[in-house]
Design a protein around this nucleic acid. Structure first.
Lengths: 206, 206
DNA sequence: TGCCCTACCTACCAGTAGGTAGCCAGTTAG
DNA sequence: CTAACTGGCTACCTACTGGTAGGTAGGGCA
């Protein structure tokens, strides 16, 4: 019992640090975030933070691996669905929206990582995402070959969809200003999701 | 004449600094770029750089204003064209691709600025872009009302297009890895442009 | 010749970054 | 009861940041 309590309290501080780090890195980027910022957000001093993580880079890598595992899990479940044709595409798009709306901070970190060419993270990003990408390519190609979808270049099609969906979350503060409203309210996210689904359906389904 | 020579040499150093700063800020962001980096790229010392620009922030703002004026000029010309219907939409999309392919560093800076909510730049970003945004909204709404385009939410439609086009340039290093090829070669840019045009045409044109 | 100006330099400032050493209170284990 | 471990702390380090002070080489000009 005491063992468990200690474990919980230890894990709790660690998780508090991870949560705060996630938020700071998403908000101000790797270079723009100091360990002091994160420690202050948790309510401890920097050396105490470094007691839980050996370095800033290690902390960032841990945050990023949380992101990757969450994305892989969420998207693989959707892509493994037995649905087919447009139903499956819509299912994956909506799963992506759910996932990203739940964790917009992850989206912003991923965007920053893409901009920085992954210099801060030790993991092989493309190695992680390539299977998903190839899987999606194969799916669209098969559906186009079967005549269910209009013919498009599958690779470029996926990049287009990726950009269309992620941008709404990564650039939310910017969109707030253009819309003169909060982009990330559940209503607006649903509206945008419905729009993207309708848009892609119109573009794809014969 | 000697006056002119002096002017030219002065302007030249200033422009070298602006060019190097543009590249560094696009590559590593505002926080990730030091004035030493920029000065070293130009081949002078930091204090000499600060002789031409009063502060890092002022330098960044100058770079960003170059970006804004180039974008406004390029896009306003396209949007002012007398074309109508799909022809005009395609013209604007292709003008955007030309513009962004010519200056991918600008795209990455704009993306970073959207992520950072514009904290580094003193200009009113949404104030600058709102007229373009409203103009595009009005255009699409009119075309949809006239029955030339399928009905979509104009605001979300523009965000979708914005994300689809910009992502290809801002995330180019990332796409390189997924494609196992250089995304920004003229051939690939043209391919992606053709794809986006065909995709949007299929989604929009009745 | 003497003066001002531009563009650069070295040397330095205060502040902050990430990271380390070592102390200390509280808990746990033997 | 004591020893060990935990997780926090203060104090310190080095490296580097943006920015300033002061000096200098050299061109234009009266």
């Amino acid at each position: 019992m005491s063992d468990l309590t200690e474990e919980i309290s230890s894990k709790s501080t660690r998780e508090l640090i991870l949560d705060e780090a996630l938020h700071c890195f998403a908000d101000r980027g790797y270079e723009g975030t100091s360990l002091n910022d994160i420690a202050a957000g948790v309510g401890i001093r920097r050396p105490s933070l470094l007691h839980h993580f050996p370095s800033k880079e290690a902390l960032y890598t841990d945050v990023f691996e949380m992101l990757l595992s969450e994305w892989l899990e969420g998207l693989e479940v959707a892509m493994a669905s037995p649905a087919s044709g447009w139903d499956k595409a819509e299912l994956v798009i909506r799963a992506g929206f759910d996932l990203f709306a739940r964790t917009p901070d992850y989206v912003r970190i991923m965007r920053r990582e893409a901009l920085d060419s992954g210099v801060h993270v030790g993991v092989d990003l493309s190695g992680f995402l390539r299977p998903l990408f190839d899987n999606a390519c194969a799916y669209f190609t098969a559906e186009m070959d079967a005549g269910h979808f209009r013919r498009h270049n599958a690779q470029h099609l996926i990049i287009t969809g990726y950009g269309a969906i992620l941008t709404y979350f990564s650039d939310a503060p910017f969109i707030d200003e253009l819309f003169n409203d909060q982009a990330l309210t559940p209503e607006h996210v649903r509206d945008h999701c419905d729009h993207v689904v309708a848009f892609f359906r119109a573009a794809l389904v014969v």
